[in-house]
Amino acid sequence: MNENVLVRVKDLKMHFPIRAGILKRTVGVVRAVDGVSFDILRGETLGLVGESGCGKTTTGRAILRLYEPTSGEVNFRGNDLASESAEEVRRTRRHMQMIFQDPYASLNPQMRVGEIIARPLRVHKLASNAREEKEMVADIMQKVGLNVNFRDRFPHEFSGGQRQRIGIARALATSPDFIVCDEPISALDVSIQAQIINLLEQLREDLGLTYLFIAHDLSMVRYLSTRVGVMYLGKMMEMSSADELYDSPLHPYTKALLSAIPIPDPPLERRRQRTLLAGDPPSPANPPAGCRFSTRCPIAVEHCRKVEPEFRLATEGHWVACHLV
């Protein structure tokens, strides 16, 4: 494997059974993630976008093995996580962390901030004594812009933005290489979002982190990402460098998604042509045959409804799953 590849995802599938009846028989499966493959390179930020139900969050969680993938491989630094034992995964997890969407729900309200940040240090036995632990916590708090004097406060005493800083501090505690950021700013107010984004960017530069940045805010994803992947109904539709994806998208879904985002520039907005997609995305429990996007695609032909397109390299570094490009 290439030296530069930190995470390699190969044909990852994550199916959730739908159970019903008294006996909880499986009556179907939700194909949340249905065979995606991609690499995350050392030091890059890979953006993952798509609408709700497209499987982007599930992909992030399955990579960290918060879910047991149905099939497929997740390689981290050359080791296949799927074949590792629970104990090995636990040890590997030190190097891969997650920042959650909801800073209100993801912090234990009964723990003081200092303890929240110290917990991962203890779990992975990273501090040799209490004094060292205290120093490490203070250091991390400083890094994320939290006042060290607030270490004995509880999460509810902080604002949303500060709570997200606590979440980031907790993720940083074990000095990870790789962080999955799952919609880290969508619960925050506009004026606070930029603060958190700038912090994430600063930390990436200073600590040499690699991010998988999952979000539905396409502008923010472009701003932060080196490369971007677009998911739809459990499949990767397109992936390329951020600028290429936004400036010359190939997949009709990407095009529609980008044209749906209004730009805060009224004269430009008046000139912009919009591609409106009809209807809603189908259910991942019952995806359409052929190309998943064919039911809403403005250019789909008969072939698209029958044969699923392969995720292939269209031009240098630009992957796409569409018969028509």
Binding site: S159, V190, S191, I192, A194, N198, S219, Y223, L258, I261
Partner: peptide, 24 residues
């Protein structure tokens, strides 16, 4: 501050976002 804190979808050049400091 609001306008500057948003990245633009069509912006190729990335300047650091000008966040509004502090809290409402």
């Amino acid at each position: 501050g609001l306008l500057n804190s948003l990245p633009r979808l069509d912006a190729r050049i990335k300047t650091k976002l000008k966040a509004i400091g502090g809290l409402p």
